[in-house]
């Protein structure tokens, strides 16, 4: 299956669902900063990879898939949970890319200027995650 954009998803996601993600994302950023201030960067840094919004996102994936099936007249389907499970499998591959992002920042930031390093880390995350997704899909 090819990667594509489905703009009809705009209509399925409600305003409050984005608000929930905004709140969780903002709260995690603040908590990570506060933990680093009080307990040091070694502990605070862990929370830069905390799956803060993942429970909300997976629940929404399950809910949207269930609604799609109900709309088609199918009321007892496991499809919602399966879609959320597939989403989680994708996140597992993304998390390995996230580890590479952390490694890039850790090793390169003390040597070079910040913005190119952050950009390299982000591109590294994207390329690694995409490569792992392709390998898994092909096998």
């Amino acid at each position: 299956m090819r990667v594509s954009l489905d703009f009809s998803a705009f209509g399925r996601t409600k305003g409050y669902e984005y608000a929930v993600r905004f709140l969780f994302g903002g709260a995690t950023t603040v908590v990570a900063g506060l933990l680093a201030k009080h307990f040091g960067p070694a502990l605070g840094g862990l929370f830069l990879a905390f799956p803060a919004i993942f429970p909300a996102s997976a629940t929404l994936v399950e809910k949207h898939e269930k609604e799609k099936k109900q709309h088609a007249g199918i009321f007892h389907s496991r499809r919602g949970r399966q879609a959320a499970a597939v989403d989680a499998a994708g996140a597992a591959m993304g998390s390995l890319g996230l580890a590479l992002f952390g490694f890039t920042i850790w090793k390169w930031l003390p040597l070079w200027s910040p913005w190119p390093v952050l950009l390299c880390g982000t591109v590294g995350w994207l390329v690694t995650s995409f490569a792992l997704w392709r390998i898994r899909k092909d096998h």
Partner: peptide, 15 residues
Amino acid sequence: VALEARSMIAGALAF
């Protein structure tokens, strides 16, 4: 920030 990023690797593996 480099120290935070080092810990982030462990956080990502936990993820």
